[in-house]
Design a protein around this nucleic acid. Structure first.
Lengths: 243, 243
DNA sequence: GCTAGTCGTGACCTCAAGTCAGACCATACG
DNA sequence: CGTATGGTCTGACTTGAGGTCACGACTAGC
C-alpha cells in the first residue's frame, strides 16, 4: 500500500519546504472535499478516483500525485471528517455543569439530529471503521489513538475530577470503553434506520429510542460511575429533569 | 456486488436441486478451505482468487461458477469460520455451574490460547468485522443476527434463569452489549500483540492482562449483573475462588 | 454405445488503480 | 524583457485484478 506508507514515512530531513506552497495546499483541500462527497455517496470500494477527478475537472494523475493512492486519499478524507466532529466537552454551556453523564446523554440524544444535518462525515467515519482494508484500519486506529479527536481523554478526566467516575479503573480502559460503547451505540441507532435488522429487531423507533438511551446511560453509570452513597441523600443532583 | 446479491437473493422457487450433487459439494468445501487459508494469510484485499485456484490446481472460472464473486466466496469462508467457534455455553462441565460470569471469565482467559492454536478463523472473523466492504458487512450482520453463532442469546437466558442478570434490561440490549464488549475486548487483547498501539499503549502484557480481565468482568457485572444484596450475606457465592 | 445435463476450462473481456515523460506555468534572476 | 528553474498538471499508457462464456470433457441413465 504505497500511498499510505510513502505519504507519511520520514518527512525528509533536508530543510526545504519553502512556504507551504499555497497553490498546492488549496488544491489538496479541493480534492479532499470532492472525494469526501464521493466516498460518502458510493462507499469506499465503489468510489472511483477517476470520477472524483472528473468532477473537479482535473486529471486523475493529479490526485495520485497529491495523495499517492486511493487509500492515501481516503485516509485524508477520514481524518478531516473525524476532526470536524465536536469533542465531548463541546456542549452548550448549561449542560456541562450538570456533569459527566449529562454530557454523555446530551450527545446520545443529539446523535440523530447531527446525523441528519450533517450526514457526510458520519458516513465517512462509518466507512473508516468498517468498510475498508485492515491495513488502512490499522492506520486509522493509530490516528485515533494519537489524536483523540473526540476528546475522550479530557472528558474522562473531567468525570474523574468531578468525582463522578470510579478511581479504581485504568483511565485508558475507561477511555476505550467509552469510545467503543458510544461508537457502537450510535452506529446501532443510525443503521437501524438505514437497515432495520442490524440492531436486533428494533421495530418501533422513536419512543423506544429514548428508553434505550436511558437504559444505556444507566448501565454505563453502573459500570464506570462512582457507586451511589447507599441510596441516601438524593438532593445534590436534582439536575436530572425530564422524566 | 453481483455475487452476494445474486447468491442470496430469492432461493428460486422451482423445486430443482436434485440430490445435493455430492461432487459439487465436495469441491465447494475444498475451495472454501483453500480460500480460508489465503484470506487469513493475505487479508481480503490482497488475496487473489487466481492464487486460490492455482493452489488447488483448478481454473479461476470454476471458483466464480461456484460462488459468483470474491465477496460471495469470502462470505462462505466467513460463515464457516464463525460457525467453527464454540458457543458461550460450551465450557468444561465444571465451569458452567459456577455461573454466568465465571463462564465469561473462562472465555476471556482462554482467548489467548484459542487464538494461538487456531488463529485462522479468528483472523477471518477480524476481516469480516473490519476489513471488507460495507455491503458485505451488512450481509455479515444479518447472518450474525439470524444465526447467533456464539449462542449469546441462550447464554443471556442462562444468566437470567440463574438470577445473575438484571431483569430490567431488554434482552436484546444485553445480547448486543455482550457481543460488542467481548468482541472488542478480544480484538484488543489480540491486536495488542500483533500491533502494539491499538489498545492504548498497553506495554506490559502478561501480568496486566490478568488484571484487565478482572477489571473488565467486574465492570460488566456492575453494568448488567444483579446488584449485590447491600453488601451483607457474602456466603452464597463462594464460587469465585482464585483471588 | 448414445444422449442429456453438469462441470470445468482457459482464453478473453472490462475496467480501475497507478505510472510517467513531457507540456505548462510561476517565479527569480540577469 | 527573456531565460532558467522547479514545482504542477496532464492524458495516454501499463498492469493486473475480477468476472464471463463458448465449448469440450465427463457422468449417468437408458
Amino acid at each position: 500500500m504505497p500511498g499510505i506508507a510513502s505519504n507519511r514515512v520520514a518527512p525528509p530531513l533536508y530543510q526545504r519546504q519553502p512556504k507551504v506552497r499555497p497553490r498546492s495546499e488549496a488544491k489538496r483541500a479541493r480534492i479532499v472535499e470532492a472525494a469526501t462527497q464521493h466516498f460518502a455517496e458510493h462507499g469506499y470500494h465503489d468510489a472511483r478516483v477517476g470520477d472524483i477527478a472528473a468532477a473537479l475537472g482535473i486529471a486523475k494523475g493529479s490526485i495520485f500525485q497529491h495523495f499517492g493512492s486511493k487509500d492515501g486519499l481516503f485516509f485524508e478524507v477520514y481524518k478531516r471528517a473525524v476532526r470536524s466532529f465536536s469533542k465531548y466537552l463541546d456542549v452548550p454551556a448549561e449542560v456541562r455543569p450538570e456533569g459527566f453523564f449529562a454530557v454523555l446523554r446530551y450527545w446520545l440524544v443529539s446523535t440523530e439530529h447531527l446525523v441528519h444535518e450533517d450526514w457526510i462525515p458520519y458516513r465517512i467515519s462509518l466507512l473508516g471503521n468498517y468498510g475498508t482494508d485492515l491495513v488502512l484500519k490499522r492506520e486509522i486506529n493509530r490516528f485515533l489513538i494519537s489524536e483523540d479527536p473526540y476528546g475522550t481523554v479530557s472528558f474522562v478526566r473531567f468525570g474523574l475530577e468531578r468525582g463522578e467516575l470510579r478511581e479504581d479503573l485504568d483511565i485508558e480502559m475507561m477511555v476505550s470503553i467509552i469510545d467503543w460503547m458510544v461508537e457502537r451505540f450510535q452506529d446501532a441507532l443510525l443503521t437501524a434506520e438505514l437497515d432495520p435488522g442490524l440492531f436486533r429487531r428494533q421495530g418501533e423507533l422513536s419512543e423506544k429510542k429514548e428508553a434505550r438511551i436511558q437504559q444505556f446511560l444507566a448501565m454505563l453509570q453502573r459500570a464506570i460511575g462512582v457507586p451511589p452513597p447507599a441510596a441516601v441523600s438524593r438532593h445534590k443532583s436534582r439536575s436530572n429533569h425530564r422524566r
